[in-house]
């Protein structure tokens, strides 16, 4: 079975936030919920880098470990999903997650958090595939349609890769090989420096 993975190529990401918009629009994510976000380091300084972050769909995920109601589960292909009907909004997964992936909408009772919402790898949820309920609660189920997630499919520079981990790794390895890496990377020295 393929293991689904995201990979963001920091040499290609241009901080356009297209992935964020695509995710929000494509899945009708409520305002204030960010399943995906772009982080920029060293902004305005030499060596500025951006990376797009969502749920990493970890193996042995800490969110699954801490959930008191076992609302979070991992599919065979590695995608970590949450059952919004089981979730009680306690927020433990947010405290355990290193990537800040779990998001909580405002609930009704005394500002209680609603059910947790996070990146689904565009694989819907525990409800029946392509059902109305699934679409309403979790957004699109593009994996069941045989497509890559919204964010990766629209990424203009193809910095964000998603899919079978082995294939993603091969694509990235080839890229790194072609452009060189570390001190051999293309840049000022390669282009202009006289040796």
């Amino acid at each position: 079975m393929a293991r689904m993975r995201f990979l963001c190529d920091t040499e290609r990401c241009i901080d356009c936030s297209g992935c964020v918009i695509a995710c929000k629009e494509g899945n009708h994510v409520p305002v204030g919920i960010n399943r995906r976000r772009v982080i920029t380091m060293k902004q305005g300084e030499p060596g500025e880098k951006s990376i797009s972050v969502a749920c990493m769909h970890c193996s042995d995920a800490p969110c699954i470990a801490v959930c008191p109601v076992d609302a979070i589960y991992q599919r065979d292909d590695g995608v970590v999903l949450v059952s919004k009907k089981t979730c009680i909004g306690c927020g433990y997964c947010f405290m355990a997650c290193p990537f800040g992936a779990p998001q909580f909408p405002k609930g009704s009772v005394f500002g209680a958090r609603g059910a947790m919402d996070k990146c689904t790898f565009c694989a819907g949820g525990p409800e029946e595939n392509f059902s109305k309920e699934e679409k309403k609660l979790y957004g699109q189920n593009r994996i069941a349609e045989g497509k890559v997630p919204m964010c990766a499919s629209m990424c203009a520079t193809k910095a964000l890769l998603a899919g079978d981990g082995d294939v993603v790794a091969d694509v990235f390895r080839e890229r790194v090989f072609n452009r060189g890496s570390g001190v051999n990377a293309w840049g000022w020295n390669k282009a202009y420096k006289k040796s």
Binding site: I39, K42, E45, P46, K49, P98, F99
Partner: peptide, 28 residues
């Protein structure tokens, strides 16, 4: 531009991922 090429070092990647995962290692 020297600064630019230096970014490819593991330390800088460490800093990048530190920016993403934040202070998870503290009590996470």
């Amino acid at each position: 531009m020297d600064g630019f090429t230096q970014f490819f070092s593991p330390e800088n990647y460490g800093e990048l991922y530190g920016g993403i995962t934040g202070d998870w290692q503290k009590l996470g």
